[in-house]
């Protein structure tokens, strides 16, 4: 763990709402090594995006983060806005979910890209523009030099997300946060955009945290996976073993709900009964209400996240059953 690029310890994200406080992320700890691709999966509302927002200092006004986010030796949560601005957009950058609304409609695409380089790397306007055009070319925007002088509404959705990728990777960050980067895109270009992102990140040695609810994407790109439920880590495993031997009942449910080629003739996909409960409550396992194999202890005591060394290296799960029956 000493060689990790990012090390999150006991991260909590709370939101103040009119009806009281709600816990979106609850005691999450995870590590990312340089160059590694970590997937965070979970359904809507599991808090996966909020982890990224907390790291970037982009939580909504009523949100508060607690715990520690150590990135290159600095606790991002404790930095002043000025110091944080020296990290984000430079060593740490982010790609957002909706490319249609994430680019400034009033600014030329090239200028939006160049801006970061001017601020972070001290390049001149001309140098930064040239660099921006080169990067647009690398994300395969045709006729990049001319395109850089256009405005976002003149780009298609897929092209805009490639612009976002160019923007995020322009400063050669050490870590790229990608928040469901292809959800808003046409299915036919999702894979293409993701592969491009992964390929460019590999070239620059950039590590990625990829937040998604698409397990297919995880299988394709990720080295390691963290499964999140109700703001808590349920399971963590290397990507290839997670699909073959899920340890947590929730992960098993997720995998059963995933369409597979060999089961295409079965009438229905598996579902997990019930709905996620909102707002983390203090007692018990967050998944207990929907779990088919729950024990009496699950409703009263929260199962801790334990190393499953018996199942293989790098495996953790928060379930009484997996601890008991390796």
């Amino acid at each position: 763990m000493t060689d990790s690029l990012l090390s999150i310890r006991d991260l909590g994200v709370r939101f103040r709402l009119p009806q009281g406080e709600t816990m979106a992320v609850d005691g999450v700890s995870l590590d990312v090594a340089p160059g590694e691709v970590l997937g965070i999966v979970g359904e809507s509302g599991s808090g996966k995006s909020q982890i990224l927002y907390a790291m970037m200092g982009l939580l909504a006004a009523n949100g508060r983060a607690s715990g520690q986010v150590l990135f290159q030796g600095q606790n991002l949560l404790a930095l002043s806005p000025d110091r944080l601005d020296r990290v984000r957009g430079d060593a740490l950058s982010m790609i957002f979910q909706d490319p249609m609304t994430s680019l400034n409609p009033y600014m030329r695409v090239g200028d939006q890209l160049a801006e970061g380089l001017i601020v972070h790397k001290g390049l001149s306007k001309a140098e930064a523009r040239a660099e921006a055009v080169r990067m647009l070319d690398r994300v395969r925007i045709p006729d990049a030099a001319a395109r850089a002088r256009r405005f976002p509404h003149e780009f298609s959705g897929g092209m805009r997300q490639r612009v976002m990728i160019a923007m995020a990777l322009l400063a050669k960050p050490r870590l790229l946060l990608a928040d469901e980067p292809t959800t808003a895109l046409d299915v036919t270009i999702q894979a293409q955009v993701l592969d491009l992102m992964a390929e460019l990140a590999r070239e620059t040695g950039t590590a990625i945290i990829l937040v998604t609810h698409d397990l297919g994407v995880v299988a394709r790109l990720c080295d390691r996976v963290v499964v999140l439920y109700g703001g808590r880590v349920m399971e963590e495993a290397p990507a290839e073993v997670l699909f073959d031997a899920p340890a947590h009942p929730y992960t098993r449910g997720l995998l059963a709900a995933m369409p597979r080629l060999e089961t295409v003739l079965t009438p229905r996909l598996g579902t997990i009964p019930g709905t996620p409960r909102s707002g983390g409550s203090a007692k018990g396992c967050p998944f207990v209400d929907r779990c088919e194999v729950r024990l009496a202890a699950c409703t009263t005591d929260r199962p801790p996240l334990r190393d499953l060394t018996a199942l293989g290296p790098g495996r953790r799960a928060a379930c009484y059953l997996t601890g008991a029956a390796p």
């Binding site: 970037m56 200092g57 982009l58 806005p81 000025d82 944080l84 601005d85 020296r86 990290v87 984000r88 957009g89 430079d90 950058s93 982010m94 957002f96 909706d98 609304t101 994430s102 680019l103 400034n104 409609p105 600014m107 801006e115 970061g116 601020v119 972070h120 976002m164 923007m167």
Partner: peptide
């Protein structure tokens, strides 16, 4: 609250640039 303002903040270009330019 616009997404593109969030993008600008994520770029770490400083609050003044976010405000004036974006």
């Amino acid at each position: 609250r616009e997404n593109y303002v969030r993008t600008a903040r994520a770029k770490g270009i400083g609050w003044h640039r976010v405000l004036w330019r974006h």
